[in-house]
Design a protein around this nucleic acid. Structure first.
Length: 195
DNA sequence: TACGTGATCACG
DNA sequence: GTGATCACGTAA
């Protein structure tokens, strides 16, 4: 079952980021189905400096100002595509960055895209998982109710106490806000990114 | 630890 | 137009 729009349109982005742990991200790109269990997320709110939307709307971050339930994909460091889901109401530009997955369906397709014969760490990082699932900027602003990218309920329930909070990665420019404990990881998962 | 890589955005 | 910057990954 796809998560409904009401899941994404709630106000508290950290709650949504936590609840996304254990859910399953699915893509159907070029008729190739791939999926993974979400094991690492980060929350971003327009109210704090870590967020692309902090200084207002620009051509790049425009979709963050839509209603929750659409994708926000952008190119980072000229090389990596990063995948977010937009949350909250219209003009409340919050989003959750998906940072790591445990591979589920279509593992051989992911290996092909990553040019590796191993499964090890194949989706353990925000830039890697987009490549493995075939996500790029063409997938910016898509509705998560569509057939190309969506998130569905996982098969087993994740307990709140097995989710760890820590500070977000790679946002030193955000000053004090870089210390917010808005990165969430699944305790004990070997698929969490390692930076 | 260092650097590739190119879109983006705040300046003029 | 131009230049600094950047929510990373890999090799070393």
């Amino acid at each position: 079952m796809k998560l409904p729009n009401s899941f994404y349109q709630r106000q508290n982005v950290t709650t949504i980021a936590k609840e996304l742990i254990g859910k399953v991200l699915v893509t159907n790109v070029n008729n190739k189905l791939t999926s993974g269990i979400i094991v690492e997320t980060e929350a971003y709110s327009y109210k704090e400096r870590g967020c692309h939307a902090f200084k207002g709307m620009t051509p790049r971050n425009k979709v963050m100002f839509e209603e929750g339930g659409v994708t926000y994909v952008y190119l980072c460091y000229g090389i990596h595509h990063l995948f977010n889901v937009v949350t909250n109401q219209k003009d409340k530009a919050d989003a959750v960055l998906i940072r790591a997955l445990e591979p589920l369906a279509g593992q051989s397709i992911m290996q092909e895209r990553m040019k590796t014969k191993s499964l090890n760490k194949i989706t353990s990082g925000p830039g890697k998982l987009t490549k493995a699932l075939g996500i790029d900027r063409n997938h910016n602003g898509l509705f998560l109710q569509n057939h190309e990218i969506w998130i569905e309920e996982g098969s087993s329930r994740v307990l709140a106490k097995s989710i760890l909070a820590s500070s977000r990665i790679g946002i030193d420019y955000a000053g004090e806000d870089a210390k917010l404990p808005w990165r969430f990881t699944l305790m004990g998962s070997e698929w969490v990114s390692g930076r």
